[in-house]
Amino acid sequence: MGEALALASALCFGATHFLNGLLARRADSAAVALTGQLGGTALMLALAPLAAAPHITPAALGWGALSGLGTGLGVAFLYRGMSGGRFSVVVPLSDVAAVALPVLIGVALLGDRPTWPAWTGIAAAPPALWLISRSARADASPGAAAPRGRGVVASGACDGLVAGVGFAAQFVALAQADAAAGLWPLAVSRAVSVLALVPPVARRPRAPRMPGRLAWACAGVGALGTVAITLYVLAAREQLMSLAVVLTALYPAIPVLLGVTVLRERLTRAQAAGLACAGAAIALISLA
């Protein structure tokens, strides 16, 4: 049951990030992220009272708040990267970081003991990150030539890495929240993620404007993202956190596939090799 929940979470996450990436190309990325989190928060506040919560503790709500900070950081940088960079670069970079860091935290702090194939997957992550973040000369600014024999950092790569750190914090923190608190840690997480996204929007020189139809679309996609994280929490309660994280982290297959097929994005050979390496790393880490 836990595996099915995690894979369903991956499907919802993939659809959420792809749709929000498209929306971030039509409006300010920070505003898209904030509006989406508002929609997700509204949905969770409606659902939380309906779920059993026999024992709500400050610790459980604190873990929810910490995860919300990670969510806010993750979505802000992910959508900023996707608004100007390649879906097939930004999303896998955030994914590998979001998988490897929870596994390492589980080993160092939570007593997890990965098998040797899982350690091999962790070791494969850095070269995957390097390959995916390299871009051919065609990715450089028009009229600018890349140094001979060298690539340049692909557009959005740094944003993808920072987003991955935020998502790792989200996954680890939510997995620590007591199941007896029901969905209230998630409700706190959504609310805190909104607060975390307010400063990036407020720092804009001009208040970002968003047509009503676009705002409703962002809110709807944000609600889908809340469904995704709820499915992850339920999966983590059924099995080891590391396994739930890895299965959930399969979501880049959806936006990458759509980015290549629907948006006609092209990958360099190095990036294709990096994606293959990332896939191998995720598969090996899942053996933890």
Rank of each mutant, 00 (worst) to 15 (best):
G72M: 14
V162M: 08
V152P: 11
Q176L: 15
H55T: 04
F87V: 14
S133G: 12
A175E: 10
A244K: 00
A53Y: 01
A281F: 12
E265H: 12
T57G: 03
A181R: 15
R209T: 03
V75L: 01
R190I: 03
L195Y: 13
L22E: 05
A60M: 01
A48R: 03
G166F: 03
I122D: 13
V246W: 08
G225F: 13
T35D: 01
H17A: 04
V233R: 15
V103F: 09
A10C: 01
F18T: 03
T230P: 03
T41M: 06
H55A: 14
C277S: 11
A31N: 01
P127W: 04
V103C: 12
A179W: 06
S193L: 12
P205A: 11
D159T: 11
L50D: 07
A10L: 03
T230L: 07
V198M: 12
Y79W: 01
Y232R: 09
A140I: 06
A154W: 10
G21N: 04
L66M: 13
V262R: 13
A228T: 09
A281I: 11
P255R: 04
A76C: 07
L263G: 12
R148E: 13
Y232G: 08
T268A: 14
L7M: 10
A146R: 06
L47A: 02
V198N: 05
A273L: 14
P127V: 08
V107Y: 09
F13H: 07
Y232S: 10
A118L: 07
A4H: 08
G106T: 02
L131I: 01
P58I: 03
V99D: 02
L183H: 02
R137C: 07
G160N: 11
T35L: 12
P114W: 11
S9P: 02
A180S: 13
A125D: 06
V221D: 06
S88G: 03
L195T: 09
